[in-house]
């Protein structure tokens, strides 16, 4: 229950962090809030030759609206984002999903980009990013690139990030007028890992549903113009596509049932918000 030894680097700029990543490659781990990394290090599920602590890098500690996006730097904690005064107006789905992320005590250190980097299939922030079609900004000594959410999270704890790349920011689309959103999840107790989490966005007849906790990554599908029995049938077809398996927390059958029932509920809730 104690981590194995590792070197510790605390760069002062993102450029310094990129140089360190180029040097260590996949031998290093980025430490931001540490709320996913430290448990894995304590359990010795993860080994790292070095931790690169980016939590004090000033240039990565910002929340700003640029164009039609809310951009969040890699040093921003979940609690800081939740306290952003315009959040409920700018990206309501984030304001609705964030309270489900861990507990207040872990949100005080856990970062938004760290959640995306960790890529847990039941995690809320990757689900919100995927449902909204946001993107991740990656930087390395080789340059910078932007990857869409759908291409970023590839599977269980697996992303498109190359070993020498650092997530410097995440961009969430600002909600446009006439759009509504809703978020819900089922967990054994509030703050635990979700058994199933659901995010919905509605704009007129356009309906989009994101589901976490069933497949090995957040799954997003469109249900445009559907209602009633047609919507139920489409949700049923969607949930069978997700796969999903039994585990300690819930059976695949239970998870499918949650998606069918709560999927319809969050979509209707999003529609109600959009009016």
């Amino acid at each position: 229950m104690k981590p194995r030894p590792f070197a510790y680097c605390r760069p002062e700029t993102a450029a310094e962090a990129a140089v360190l990543l180029a040097e260590y490659g996949d031998e290093a781990r980025i430490l931001a809030g540490g709320q996913s990394l430290l448990p894995m290090l304590n359990f010795r599920l993860v080994d790292a030759a070095a931790l690169i602590d980016i939590s004090r890098i000033e240039e990565l500690s910002y929340i700003r609206e640029t164009g039609d996006r809310l951009e969040i730097g890699a040093a921003v904690t979940q609690a800081q984002l939740l306290a952003y005064p315009d959040l409920a107006k700018a990206v309501p789905l984030l304001a609705k999903g964030l309270p489900f992320v861990g507990h207040v005590q872990t949100r005080n250190r856990g970062t938004v980009c760290g959640s995306l980097a960790h890529a847990d299939p039941s995690s809320e922030l990757p689900l919100v990013l995927a449902t909204l079609g946001g993107e991740v900004v990656l930087r390395s000594a080789r340059g910078e690139r932007v990857v869409g959410a759908a291409e970023f999270q590839l599977g269980l704890l697996t992303t498109a990030r190359e070993p020498d790349e650092l997530i410097v920011a995440a961009r969430f689309p600002l909600q446009s007028p006439g759009t509504g959103s809703a978020f819900t999840e089922v967990a054994r107790r509030h703050g635990d890992f979700a058994i199933v989490s659901l995010a919905a966005v509605a704009a007129g007849a356009a309906l989009r549903l994101g589901v976490g906790g069933v497949a090995d990554h957040p799954a997003v599908a469109a249900f445009d113009g559907l209602a009633g029995a047609d919507l139920d049938a489409a949700l049923n077809a969607f949930v069978w596509e997700l796969g999903g398996s039994d585990d300690l927390h819930a059976s695949a059958h239970y998870r499918r049932d949650l998606v069918r029932r709560l999927g319809r509920r969050v979509l209707e809730e999003a529609q109600a918000c959009s009016a």
């Binding site: 540490g34 430290l38 304590n42 359990f43």
Partner: peptide, 22 residues
């Protein structure tokens, strides 16, 4: 591993897990 909360302390005023902080 951050679940039980027994080790919670405050850093710069914020309640955080001491076991998930180096």
């Amino acid at each position: 591993h951050g679940v039980c909360g027994a080790c919670t302390v405050r850093i710069d005023g914020l309640a955080v897990r001491a076991c998930l902080t180096l």
